[in-house]
Write a protein that binds this DNA or RNA. Structure first.
Lengths: 242, 242
DNA sequence: GAGTGGTCTAGACCACCTT
DNA sequence: AGGTGGTCTAGACCACTCG
């Protein structure tokens, strides 16, 4: 590898150069790939990686044989699902405004858990850290999160992390790097404690995300249920057909 | 390009060879990338494209410096979101069991529509085809779909397509190839007509997908609201962190 | 035919994990 | 040190669109 290219910084440059208008023509068309390669001093491969990321963000689209175009502005009030995201810009922005109102943790046996992972089989006396958090977005009640962490892998979670970002806490402590997360998205009735927190009635709908976090070596670290306030939660996805 | 490789067929081969057990060892570990390259007679680049796809399907995971592993079997009763899917196997399978119970269409003016696209601005007298479909999965009520197609792009939809797959109908008629689809996923109250169809009460929750389909040249083709039965709808996503 | 995006080969080198 | 996955270069060729 001749040199580390740093895709993220190129994506940032492209976005800022698009926004300032110096990269797009009147039809919202970007320069051709050969020109962009010269402009950023990268090869076809690296450029296409960057463009792919911007495609998934819903920021541009490409038309075979015609060109690359900036998309008309998206609804930006939603969480984008980008499979290949490493604590993306959007998450950071959200993370800043995301605060934890109340949180609790205690250690329990696997047999005492309200729910378990579908894929991992626990022994009855495996220890789990049971965490419940009530969180706000921009001050408004946003989600209730009930999660279980495997004590054998983590053993202690400081209160500071509980009231900030657990994700960042794990990323920073080198031994527990998260590799991938499975998410199952559903709609269901809002449970009572979440309803009280959100000032909604018990029979309100709720977006439920059931997730399982795995370390980069494939071991299951944690699993959780997250009940989102249906009034202010939107998930955005771009599907590309080919 | 020396030869067209056909990633899909390689992915299929890999999956069948994994399932028959001839490709995995006792630790569910696959051969190293150099060996796989020889086995399938493809280069590093093509192999990694195939592995990437299998990663997104949640079928395997890779550990840097260690190897590639088959994942413990997933919950397969859910729709997988794969950004880069071209009418994937899973969609086909679903498509087979997905039937339309009742459907209706009529032509209206944009000003008469119940809702419009957020990104595209219509003139009041732009014509839209207004379609409503009630659909079942394996015979059970599954979703109510209310969609609007731009008459200027499509002008006629045969009843046959209405009762089968509209998506496939558009793909087959060369002039209306779909390039990408935006989806916004939310949770909300089930509207009355959908509730009656699903035999649920009006205040039941529902998974609502608000989507916009674009042609491969970037033009908006259609937009719709799909209300899914919360009892049998799950969406599956794998997020990779790096 | 000229120009655009899309895919692939071949080969190099980096980053990580195990021993 | 040696093997594994991860990223990049350089260059070729394919597929599509438009005048």
């Amino acid at each position: 590898m001749a040199e580390k290219v740093d895709l993220d910084s190129i994506v940032k440059r492209m976005i800022s150069e698009i926004q300032s208008g110096e990269l797009v023509d009147d039809n919202l068309k970007l320069p051709s790939e050969p020109l962009l390669m010269k402009h950023y001093q990268i090869t076809h491969y690296a450029l296409r990686q960057a463009l792919k990321q911007m495609n998934l963000m819903g920021y541009v689209y490409q038309v075979h044989g015609v060109g690359t175009f900036v998309r008309h502005q998206q609804t930006r009030d939603s969480i984008a699902i980008e499979h290949e995201t490493g604590l993306s810009e959007k998450m950071r922005r959200i993370g800043i405004n995301l605060t934890t109102k109340t949180a609790s943790q205690r250690v329990i046996k696997a047999s005492e858990a309200d729910f378990l992972s579908k894929t991992y089989h626990f022994k009855d006396d495996d220890e789990l850290i049971d965490i419940k958090r009530y969180r706000c977005l921009d001050g408004k009640p946003y989600l209730m999160e009930h999660s279980y962490y495997r004590k054998s892998l983590i053993d202690n979670i400081p209160m500071k992390a509980l009231y900030g970002s657990l994700f960042e806490y794990f990323e920073e402590s080198r031994k527990t790097q998260i590799g991938f997360i499975d998410e199952i998205i559903m709609s269901t009735f809002l449970p009572q404690d979440a309803a009280e927190f959100m000032n909604l009635s018990v029979n309100s709908p709720s977006l439920l995300i059931n997730d399982e976090s795995y370390l980069s070596n494939g071991e299951l670290l944690a699993f959780s249920k997250q009940y989102y306030n249906y009034e202010n939660t939107k998930i955005f996805v771009v599907k590309k057909i080919h």
